[in-house]
Amino acid sequence: MSGSINRRVTRYAEAIAGIGDGATILLGGFGGAGVPLGLVAAIAEAGLRDLTVVSNNGGSGEPDLSIWLAGGQVRKLICSYPKSKASSTSSFTDLYRAGKIELELVPQGTLVERMRCAGAGLGGFYTPVGVGTALAQGKEVRNLGGRDYLLELPLHGDVALLRAHQADRLGNLTYDKTARNFGPVMATAAALVVAEVDAFVALGTLDPEAVVTPGVLVDRVVTVGAPR
């Protein structure tokens, strides 16, 4: 099929081209589901430094975010749950205890909603989550309709790295089960959106009713197992 738009890239090096030191990276995944491991490996290999990473988890000791942490590539982690079962030996735990990494701890629903705001062009939102807790420190509290809320601000990424199931050349994406998690929201919230997919399919193959992330949000698609 012909057409001028083609989001597909054939190599991981192309998929991450232009991402620089100091970037803020939105990294998809919840636990082991939905983490773009090939893109993670490519960023590790590129040796990028001073990264700010937004990720629900802090790495499990598998070849996930843990390898960026172990490589000293991450300056700051914005995260809801940096602990893992492997945490007694994980890189995040060591770095955090040694004071070598900054942590911004955010309740999970607030984390995703801050990215949703960024992607939806909104200036922030008021949430009841965290009111009266240690995580409310420094945040504006506003009483609306008799209930206290915290002001939370949008969270933008320079880059979003996602794991999806299928893609076509326009960048339309489907997901696989609970590997969907943060992907659809992160796809709205970054200047450059890169998806790693199980399969690239011909235009017209994806049922428009089944497309979760429309291609307008996606810049590059690389297939799992593509050459470096």
Binding site: S80, P82, K83, S87, F92, L105, T110, L135
Partner: peptide, 20 residues
């Protein structure tokens, strides 16, 4: 969180669930 100095703070969805 236990609030212990060496605790790795991790909130996950606990606050969202408790409020919602």
């Amino acid at each position: 969180s236990t609030g212990a100095a060496d605790d790795i703070p991790a909130v996950g969805g606990a606050m969202d669930l408790a409020v919602g």
